[in-house]
């Protein structure tokens, strides 16, 4: 396998209450993040709220500009691309957002939402686009007549399918899935997860899967990175990381997962926030890295 996407020393600072003349205090949302994603894999990015997962995803697609670092897609430097080239590359990199309720324009029919990326990239004529939309609806398991309906007429799971159809319109090779099923009920979540697995197989997709549900990450990811305060504290094959976590925060995270087979108090490991140090990753086993 080869790396489809390589991220090196990525940094993103936000300055709060910044004004024209005076910079406010700076939040380092992403702090020296390095990882790579191989073609065809599902790479999981987990961590607590505010740890920098979404910001990392948005930086990769340059939906926001990183402060520094490197992003290479198929060995091309995404951050150095002029606008035209960036537009071309973005076709291959798409993002699906968490909230199936707010990620679709409520005044736009589902079909128009899915066709919009084609319109923006001036792909096909009206007829070709309609045909493509029909194919996409079929692909994500929505009835053809759904194209004429508005977002509020769909359930959460159906809206997430529409979001997926839209993201797939330009035939991307990498999808950044930002908590794509977190807002869904578990029975519907399972349907969408299965759809993601099917699509990956049929279309050869690569996923960056952002999630806070570690059970889901274990289910579908081949490799996992754990973020804490903007940094990757551990990265490795999913089975290794779940069975032999090396970082204290990962251990706390894993032992906090509610389990079906446990009654009474869990053997929980707590993580002392004060013990956190900004350490570089070192390889604790083959392909398994931890900031220890």
């Amino acid at each position: 396998m080869t790396a489809l996407l390589e991220v090196g020393h990525l940094v993103k600072d936000f300055s709060a209450h910044g004004s024209l003349f005076r910079k406010g205090p700076v939040t380092r949302a992403v702090d020296d993040v390095t990882f790579s994603i191989e073609t065809g894999e599902t790479f999981g990015l987990v961590g607590e709220s505010g740890s920098g997962k979404t910001t990392t995803g948005r930086c990769l697609l340059r939906l926001i500009e990183p402060t520094s670092g490197e992003v290479r897609f198929r060995d091309e430097n995404v951050l150095a691309m002029p606008p035209r080239e960036l537009r071309r590359t973005r076709r291959h990199l798409q993002m699906v957002f968490q909230d199936p309720y707010s990620s679709l324009d409520p005044r736009m029919r589902a079909g128009a939402s899915v066709a919009e990326p084609l319109v923006i990239h001036r792909i096909g004529n009206r007829q070709a686009r309609d045909a493509r939309v029909a194919t996409l609806f079929d692909l994500v398991g929505l009835p053809a007549d759904a194209a004429a309906r508005y977002p509020h007429e769909f359930s959460g799971g159906q809206r997430q399918r529409i979001g997926l159809a839209r993201a797939l319109a330009l035939e991307p090779s990498l999808l950044v899935l930002d908590e794509p099923v977190s807002a869904l009920d578990v029975s519907v979540q399972a349907q969408v997860v299965n759809l993601l697995l099917d699509l990956q197989q049929r279309l050869g997709l690569t996923y960056l899967f952002i999630a806070h549900d570690l059970r889901l990450v274990r289910q579908i990811c081949s490799r996992v990175a754990v973020m804490y305060r903007g940094r990757i504290v551990e990265l490795g094959p999913a089975d290794r990381l779940f069975d032999a976590p090396a970082h204290g925060y990962t251990r706390a995270l894993l032992t906090a997962i509610p389990r079906l087979d446990v009654t009474g108090r869990l053997d929980r490991v707590e993580y002392d926030e004060a013990s956190f140090e900004r350490l570089p990753l070192s390889e604790v086993a083959a392909g398994h890295w931890a900031a220890v």
């Binding site: 029975s187 399972a190 289910q219 079906l260």
Partner: peptide, 23 residues
């Protein structure tokens, strides 16, 4: 039974047993 079967995490790398349809 369907609810329990659709919970992720039990068998890594496999499809989940979803309940068809919605409420």
């Amino acid at each position: 039974r369907g609810l329990l079967a659709s919970m992720p995490g039990a068998r890594p790398g496999t499809r989940l047993e979803a309940i068809a349809g919605t409420v």
